[in-house]
Amino acid sequence: MSTAALGRVPFIPEAILRAHHVHEPADDRFRAAARTRQALLREAKGWPIGLWATDTDKARELGSFLAPEHGDANFITPEIAKLARREVAWREDDALIDTERLYRNMLSSMPACFNLIGPLALDPRLATAVLRRLAPDFVKKVNATLFEHSPARRHPAFTHDRTAFDTLFKVTTTAGEHGFVAVEVKYTESLNEPPARLRPRYDEVSQESDLFVDPNHPQLRTAPLQQLWRQHLLAYTMVKNGLYTTGRFMVIAPSLNRVAQEAIALYRTHLLPGGIIPFEAISYEQYIEAIRRSGAANIAALLHDRYLDFTAVDALITD
C-alpha cells in the first residue's frame, strides 16, 4: 500500500508522530502526513529543528519548523530564496507577509507560493508556457508576476479591506486584451481560518457582480468559503474599475488535501455559469506537470519531492 497507489495519505500512529516531534492533535489527516513529510525532509537534510511557541504555550521543538539560521532551506533553490527576500523588502504597503511563516514554517502556504510560482517569476518564458497550459483559452503571454498583491488595500472602490492575492499574473489574453490571473495557493490549510469582519462593501459588490447564485447566501460569509468569496469580489472590482479588461481567479491546492478540495467544490456550487471572472481550481499535481511539460523538469522534480512525494511517510507505516 502507498499514498501514490491509493490516492490518500495514511493515518499516522501517535508514537511515530511524537518520535519526529510532529504530534499536533488539531491536525487533520493530510496536515499530519504533510507535517511528517516535512520533518523527515528536514531530518534527511540535516537542518536543525526549530522551536515553536504560541501565545499560550512555551517554546518547544516542532519537526516541521526550521531553526532561524536555516530559513533559506524553506525554498527549493537559492534563487527562489533570494527572490523571497527581495519581495519581502519591496513588498506593497500594508501587505501581510509573516516572515516567520515564510522562512521557518515548512507547512505554510507562504513559502509554498514562492516555491511554486517563484520559478515562473524568475523566467517569464516559463511563466508564459505554464499559464498557456493551465489556461490555453485565455493566456497568450505573461507580462509580469506580482506577489501578495492588491490593487489598493482599504480603498472603498475595491473591497475596502486588506484582501490580496498570493500571486497575480498580468497577461495578454488570446483575444489581445489586458488581463490577469489572480492566484491563491493552499498547502495544508483547510480554508477554515477565522473569517474577516463583514463589511457593507462586500454585500454591495457581491450583489452587483453577477457571480453568485445567491449573492447574499450566509455560506459565502463564513469559513470555509469567505476568503474565496472576498478574493473573487476583489478580482471583479479590478475589472469594474478599469484596471484590466478581463481576468480569472485560480486556486492551487494539493488533490490530497481533501478538506480544501471539498471547500473548493462547495464554493463552485455558489457560482453562476458564465461569470465575468471565471473560477479555476488547479491541483499541485496539474501545476507541477505543467511545469515539467514546459521544459523545467528539474524544477518539477524538486516541487514533487517537496510536496507530493510521501514515500518516506509510507515507509514509516509499512516498516
Rank of each mutant, 00 (worst) to 15 (best):
I49V: 15
Q227M: 09
P156R: 15
I97F: 12
F138I: 10
K140D: 15
Q226N: 13
A19T: 04
V205S: 02
V171A: 08
R31G: 04
A67R: 13
L220T: 01
T237D: 08
S255W: 02
F11K: 14
R35D: 03
P224L: 02
E262F: 01
E193P: 00
L126Y: 13
D27C: 02
K58Q: 14
R104K: 14
K170E: 15
K45Q: 15
E87V: 15
A73I: 01
N105D: 15
S206E: 10
A53H: 15
T128S: 10
R91L: 03
R199C: 00
N298G: 13
H70M: 03
F158Q: 02
N216K: 13
A32I: 06
L191V: 05
D98F: 10
D214G: 05
R101K: 15
K141H: 09
T3E: 12
D123N: 15
L134V: 14
M1F: 13
Y202T: 08
A84Y: 03
R248H: 06
A182N: 07
R60M: 06
G71K: 11
A127R: 06
V259E: 08
A290T: 07
V171R: 04
M250P: 05
Q286F: 00
R132S: 10
G295E: 11
L225I: 06
A315L: 02
D203F: 12
V171K: 09
L40C: 14
R258A: 04
L234D: 03
Y244I: 04
I277A: 04
I317E: 08
T128H: 11
Q286W: 03
Y236K: 08
L303V: 02
E92V: 00
I288S: 09
Q227K: 13
G242Y: 02
F65S: 08
D309K: 04
D314H: 03
K170D: 14
G7H: 12
P194Q: 10
A34W: 01
D28I: 01
V251L: 13
A290P: 03
I12M: 06
L198A: 05
N192I: 00
N143W: 00
E280K: 06
A59N: 06
P10W: 05
N115P: 04
H217Y: 08
I288T: 09
D57Y: 01
N143V: 00
R201F: 03
R42A: 15
R29Y: 02
A95P: 10
T172F: 00
T237M: 09
L302K: 15
E262R: 13
T172N: 06
E43C: 09
D28S: 10
